[in-house]
């Protein structure tokens, strides 16, 4: 039985941040609970209590404002996966959300929780990084907006203060003619934590790639963009030979990123497979699956 001496259920963000600021106890915001509930039971949390965000109504919406998609931090993976707006405007994010855990976990887990948990293998975080998404954080000191990539600072670590709550995640809508996607390599199809994941966005102009975003997860403490891989694609024409050379280069990049880590030998080979698969989908519209 977990020790939970405080369980507070605010009905608005301002109530939540006021409670966090005024309490002298060590509290943690509770979003979906898929990581916190089992961790509490195993005694791994070392906190006095929880601020349950599930009763705050206005942090669950998906909307477009000023050419940006704005997602409430408590949007579940299932909501994102099924949203026609996300499917059409940011397909990589819908695919990433659909790759998380199991149907049960996708109905509970939230995008805000995925960021705050700061797992190296967080599926939607890899997509958010590719989208250069920002998080809006609220506290009694006011609002701040930070790139998701800058919030993450190590395995399980973020720059989110103990009195702050993630309220919203937003990103510019990728241009109309973009191709985007997400792919994950897991030990099995269902319920796998990614051994590696990859999100990409490209756009073409006159048959040549003129914009590329490449984000890799589980090849470092947090998912990150790889600008070398992005630059490699710029100005090139999508083709089978480009897929070959891009996959080869991705292997070299992963090898460089992982250095002498035990997983390096496996991952620098395996990344070629996921790069090949996702690039084929984006460059050639091919659905061939190589894993």
């Amino acid at each position: 039985m977990p020790e939970c001496s405080v369980y507070y259920q605010p009905e608005s963000i301002s109530e939540a941040v006021n409670f966090l600021a005024s309490s002298e106890r060590t509290l943690k915001p509770l979003a979906g609970g898929t990581d916190i509930v089992p961790a509490m039971r195993k005694g791994e949390m070392n906190i006095d209590g929880l601020v349950d965000l599930s009763k705050i109504p206005d942090i669950r919406s998906i909307k477009i404002e000023d050419n940006e998609i704005k997602l409430g931090s408590l949007c579940t993976f299932a909501q994102i996966e099924r949203s026609p707006l996300i499917q059409t405007k940011a397909s990589l994010l819908a695919q990433a959300a659909g790759a998380v855990g199991s149907p049960q976990i996708r109905s509970l887990g939230t995008i805000g929780g995925n960021i705050a948990n700061a797992s190296p293998a967080a599926d939607t975080v890899t997509a958010f990084i590719a989208l250069d998404a920002k998080a809006r954080l609220e506290s009694t000191n006011g609002t701040r907006s930070v790139l998701v990539s800058e919030l993450l600072c190590g395995v399980g670590k973020t720059n989110i203060s103990s009195n702050e709550i993630i309220a919203e995640i937003s990103f510019k809508i990728p241009s109309e003619n973009n191709q985007s996607g997400f792919i994950k390599l897991g030990r099995r199809k269902a319920l796998a934590i990614a051994r590696m994941n990859l999100a990409m966005i490209i756009t073409l102009h006159d048959g040549l790639i003129d914009f590329a975003r490449v984000s890799l997860g589980a090849v470092g403490p947090n998912p990150s963009r790889n600008t070398n891989l992005e630059e490699f694609l710029i100005g090139k024409k999508p083709s089978d030979s480009l897929i070959d050379s891009f996959a080869q280069f991705a292997g070299e990049e992963v090898s460089r990123m992982l250095g002498s880590r035990a997983s390096a030998a496996y991952k620098c080979e395996a990344v070629k497979g996921i790069v090949r698969d996702l690039s084929s989908r984006l460059f050639l519209g091919s659905e061939q699956v190589v894993i």
Partner: peptide
Amino acid sequence: LDGELVDSCLVFAPQAS
């Protein structure tokens, strides 16, 4: 839970209120 399949081991009971 509200039409969605969930693992009841991952939900604190107050979340279901």
